[in-house]
């Protein structure tokens, strides 16, 4: 693929040519196309996608392409673009992603997948850019991953079988046997034995408090939880799809006035999108407004 470390330089060059061409024009010209994600500095970051502050930033319409590098792949293209806005308060950066998706898929079950989106940044904002497809060995990327399933739990859907299958009839769980409540913690300990992923603290097991997972990767198939789970998010259905805010701390080395790269991905659950079956962008230049610290 051509979207390797060269991608960034190509983007910068394109932006330069455009700027030169417009210099010195006296008549009013149409606004220059937006070629980067500009994170505008604000005093306090909004937490909802409806917040009026989002109007202060320019929208970047990022074309989406199929993940086409590793099997299993998505073969038929889904959403064609994601509209991105960004704001920063100097410590964190918030992205607002909006894309078209006719169906709300927030249930995960056998053969049912969740809608989702993700923001990817290089761990190191320096010139040594990792490959945009999940980074590469020695050049890791950081990913903040929002899912509609986690959002649904936060919005109040109970985390039980009845919420998936209202008519399901469950006779008995051994950890709900009468009498267990007499020993504090006994029932929970027993329930854990039948839920190994939860016992191991796997972050895909529902956590009702957070809709965003912090992940890192250094190549396809290497994604793992990041040491700190500090990103937050909120997603809402729009008329035509989703609008999602993902807020994460600025990666190390990135500050107001600085630049880096950013990439996005979206998943449509009812299309069977999951893991590498997704629509993604190439690296996009990211600029933080504001004065550089001396």
């Amino acid at each position: 693929m051509a979207y390797g470390r060269l991608g960034r330089r190509t983007w910068m060059a394109a932006a330069g040519v455009l700027a030169a061409g417009l210099w010195g024009c006296s008549r009013p010209v149409p606004p220059a196309p937006v070629t980067e994600v500009r994170a505008v500095q604000v005093a306090a970051l909004p937490s909802t996608p409806e917040d009026a502050q989002w109007g202060s930033g320019e929208a970047f319409r990022a074309p989406l392409i199929l993940q086409d590098m590793v099997e299993p792949r998505k073969m038929v293209a889904g959403a064609t673009e994601v509209t991105v806005r960004a704001l920063t308060d100097g410590k964190s950066i918030a992205f607002r992603l909006e894309w078209a998706d006719a169906t709300e898929d927030s249930v995960r079950d056998a053969a049912r997948f969740t809608d989702a989106c993700a923001v990817q940044l290089p761990s190191n904002s320096g010139p040594d850019t990792p490959a945009p497809q999940m980074g590469e060995p020695g050049r890791p990327v950081e990913i903040a991953f929002w899912t509609a399933t986690a959002q649904a739990f936060i919005d109040g859907r109970p985390d039980d079988l009845k919420s998936l299958h209202p008519n399901a009839n469950i006779d008995h769980y051994p950890f709900e046997a009468p009498g267990l409540e007499k020993t504090p913690g006994k029932a929970e300990e027993m329930a854990k034995q039948y839920a190994p992923a939860k016992s191991l603290g796997n972050i895909v097991s529902p956590s009702p408090k957070k809709s965003v997972q912090d992940l890192m990767a250094d190549g396809p198939g290497t994604m793992r939880p990041a040491p700190s789970q500090s990103s937050t998010g909120l997603g809402r259905r729009t008329g035509a799809g989703w609008a999602v805010v993902i807020t994460r701390p600025l990666p190390s080395g990135l500050a107001p006035g600085g630049t880096s790269l950013v990439a996005f991905a979206v998943w449509n659950g009812s299309d069977g999108d999951v893991g590498g079956r997704k629509m993604r962008t190439v690296w996009i230049p990211l600029t933080l407004t504001g004065a550089k610290k001396p």
Partner: peptide, 11 residues
């Protein structure tokens, strides 16, 4: 292999 919707993993 079976998907467990409550743990979110396959078992």
């Amino acid at each position: 292999v079976f998907f467990n919707p409550m743990t979110g993993t396959s078992e």
